[in-house]
Design a protein around this nucleic acid. Structure first.
Lengths: 252, 252
DNA sequence: CGGCACGTTGAAGTGACTCAATTCGCGTGG
DNA sequence: CCACGCGAATTGAGTCACTTCAACGTGCCG
């Protein structure tokens, strides 16, 4: 995948939005035209920046253009629990459109480029082009399906299976948006962060990744996840991509 | 706990739908009128009935009228992971409106009364009364917020905290819909099922509930959850009701 | 009365955690 | 150019929480 432009324009952000929604929903010409009337603000954020914090009442929604964002809870004891990872095309805080207060935070795991859409503009879009609104709704529903898998992962799977499942999900999602090359995709998390995502301690994460590497299933190196044996990895994870609702018949 | 009408009419189901959505969204008279033009089919299900199964492609969406439903994943090894509990007013499979295939199952934990709405009718409603559609959207977003908490619970909390958190959430939600009496609310789960919900083994669940009972925090008896000391229970759980977006500001 | 489901309890095993030390990769400053 | 420092990966040892297995109690319903 060629590198994105250093400074994506808002037009490119709109391209990405249309492309992403079209991946799972059918958009009429009118919908698309209405969407292109939005005025996103594009900007870059440093690695590890908090974009929104638990308790905020944002008036914008964010779309990832490149890089990786994540949502997380801050537990009373100060620990962090990551909830989800977000890559190009994702709208990680779209729920803020209707849930006034953020119940979690949003941060960058990477140097990332993001586009911000005003809530007021999105609401106007939804009114003007209802089926574009339905596409956004569907987007949040897929989000929910991913959350459900995370519950199952953290609740019922072994350490190795959790890590393996994370790898499967991340690679599948990256492939869906074309953000991969061959059997590799971006994966900028440290082992500590993986632990805070799947509910394991650092040493346990390390031993799990090490095992997967030894078994030639997958490995992380230099911010990249590389799949070595997709079938075996999937078996370790108990992975069934159904829940991603990616509609495997990926067009072109 | 007063028993509901033996045979709720579809009009009563519509009352409940309007009431539930009005709890978090403002509905115009037109919205309400449009909603009342729906034709739900009301029926009763036995305890432990599967209403929808992973892999189904339903053409209806369900609303709980009374009793309790739950969603669950079936793990490859055959085990069950419950994802969420649903009480009166909930629409536990509304996502099926846009995600064709069920990525999880829906079952009853109770003898329950449910109303079914045809997808086609809901879609027509959304088209005719867009802001009713937004209310439904918001409903699914609150659902997502609850999932996020479950991820954090299963990923980061101790055994006692998980059970305590479950109790806090369930009681808070029951109170919001008035389905409680004093400091008790319905809670028809066996300890085995609690375990499959919070990711713990049966004996661990037992010892956790026992501890909470000894500490006079809460207890389950005869299908009822009884809160003994709300503040202490909340401290055990690290419970912050913010995420339920109940916004009723009622605190006694 | 007898069976069954669920709650209760104990004992032993183990997977994951905490704590801690060492190594590696890499950028920075001397 | 090398020494240093820092963050991350790696590894080990000891502990603990939770699991598994197993037995027994208890209440309900046929």
């Amino acid at each position: 995948m060629a590198k994105k432009n250093a400074h994506p324009t808002s037009a490119q952000a709109l391209d990405l939005l249309v492309e992403t929604l079209a991946r799972h929903s059918t958009l009429s010409v009118a919908d698309e035209r209405a969407m292109r009337r939005l005025h996103p603000r594009v900007r870059e954020v440093e690695k590890g920046t908090d974009i929104l914090r638990q308790g905020d009442r944002p008036h914008i929604a964010v779309m990832v253009i490149s890089g990786m964002l994540a949502r997380y809870h801050t537990i009373p004891n100060g620990n962090r629990q990551y909830l989800s990872l977000h890559i190009a095309g994702d709208l990680p805080d779209l729920q803020s459109l209707f849930l006034g207060m953020m119940d979690h935070s949003l941060c960058s795991m990477d140097e990332a480029q993001i586009a911000s859409f005003r809530h007021t503009e999105i609401l106007a879009l939804v009114k003007r082009a209802p089926s574009a609104g339905l596409a956004l709704w569907r987007h949040t529903l897929i989000d929910g399906a991913i959350f459900r898998q995370a519950i199952t992962s953290n609740g019922g799977r072994s350490a190795v299976a959790r890590v393996a499942h994370l790898f499967c999900e991340q690679f599948t999602r990256a492939r869906a948006v074309g953000s991969m090359s061959g059997w590799s995709c971006p994966f900028p998390l440290s082992q500590t962060q993986i632990g805070q995502l799947v509910g394991l301690s650092l040493p346990t994460v390390h031993r799990a990744t090490q095992l997967l590497r030894k078994q030639k299933c997958a490995e992380v190196r230099g911010g990249e996840l590389r799949i070595l044996n997709w079938r075996r990895l999937g078996r370790q994870a108990g992975f069934d991509p159904l829940y991603l609702h990616a509609d495997l018949g990926e067009r072109s």
